[in-house]
């Protein structure tokens, strides 16, 4: 009997290890074309004592450079961003972040308010697969699932990615256990330029009111931040497209006023920021490139340090060391991309 029990236990362990290995192998690595799927997981390797955590979609991770915030204001920040991050995903990322650290400020980009229901499995995956297993992740999955999705596929991703067996390549082997960093504290760097031209006209909408679900999670964010004594700042990044309607802006302004929150619509400050959409965007105004992101970060860093009373931590020895290394990697990548662009 004892022998049989040992046999069964060993079999289960071997089977579980085999499955874990296969799951690792089959999961997309997001190391080549679409790197957005690798962003969320990078946070867990960080030293967790940030002053500011940005949470939101591409309007944050492509428009704000934590490196500039550190260099110019000594603000230690991180962007927990992912493509088309929905507001409930942002909320649960906030909840999860608070399990690791307690920043002074959370910054949330309000474009996500336009979505009131689950959108796409591919984008869900890019946000949720990177999260470590936790109650927050489960709740985020449940809130995000489209009709075709199942919770079990998120708990055991091999059930979702088993069909990748015929797509496996070198990347899957090379990045089986260790991945490259694709961001700089959550910032996705692009130095190329594609001027903003022919911005599509804003289509009139049948209903300009944000949905109940979106407001529900915004309320929860406010509550969570109040409960944890963290300041919540709402921002709208200066992206020209997708269109940010005046009606939406009004709702956010009113909401911020009602809840005593700061709300910055950077679309109204492009001149003050110094943005030139002929030079500061890499995709015709959807996102800023490095020069644009650095200008916005300088501008917003000033607001953060003055209005939120954030200390300059550049004298913190440990942080300084960490950032020196990060800034070197940041500059190296910047130079590499410029050099490549010039070719």
């Amino acid at each position: 009997m004892r022998k049989r029990l040992i046999g069964i236990t060993v079999s289960f362990i071997v089977a579980a290890v085999g499955l874990w290995f296969l799951q690792k192998l089959l999961m997309p690595k997001y190391m080549d074309d679409i790197v957005e799927g690798a962003m969320i997981a990078e946070y867990y390797d960080e030293e967790k004592n940030h002053d500011v955590i940005f949470i939101g979609d591409c309007e944050l991770y492509e428009n704000i450079s934590p490196a500039v915030l550190w260099k110019e204001y000594g603000i230690n920040s991180y962007i927990r961003g992912s493509a088309q991050q929905l507001i409930w995903q942002s909320y649960y990322l906030m909840e999860e972040t608070l399990q690791y650290e307690k920043p002074k400020v959370f910054v949330f980009n309000v474009l996500a308010m336009k979505y009131n229901s689950p959108q796409s499995e591919a984008y869900n995956r890019m946000t949720l697969d990177g999260m470590k297993m936790s109650a927050a992740k489960i709740k985020s999955v449940q809130a995000s699932m489209t009709e075709e999705e199942d919770l079990i596929d998120y708990i055991f991703p091999i059930l979702r990615y088993h069909s990748r067996f015929d797509e496996l390549g070198k990347i899957d082997i090379n990045y089986l256990f260790k991945k490259d960093k694709v961001t700089f504290n959550g910032y996705y760097m692009r130095v190329d330029v594609k001027p903003a031209q022919n911005i599509p006209e804003a289509k009139p909408l049948g209903d300009y009111n944000f949905g109940d679900t979106a407001y529900f999670y915004l309320d929860k964010m406010v509550e969570l931040c109040e409960k944890n004594n963290v300041e919540l700042i709402l921002v709208k990044a200066p992206s020209l497209y997708p269109h940010w309607y005046d009606e939406w802006d009004k709702q956010m302004s009113e909401y911020a006023l009602d809840h005593n929150l700061k709300y910055y619509n950077f679309l109204n400050s492009t001149d003050d920021i110094g943005l030139d959409f002929a030079k500061d965007t890499y995709d015709s105004g959807l996102h800023l490139n490095l020069t644009g992101a650095e200008k916005l970060s300088t501008y917003f860093g000033n607001i953060l340090s003055t209005e939120c009373d954030l200390p300059d931590r550049r004298n913190d020895k440990k942080l300084k060391e960490i950032w020196e290394e990060k800034l070197k990697a940041y500059d190296d990548e910047k130079n590499r991309q410029y050099a490549e662009n010039e070719k």
Partner: peptide
């Protein structure tokens, strides 16, 4: 163990299920 585990993995990986 090898026989049944191999069959299990065959179903798990090569099975047509899911999205």
């Amino acid at each position: 163990f090898i026989i049944w585990y191999a069959l299990f993995l065959t179903v798990l990986i090569f099975g047509t299920y899911g999205i």
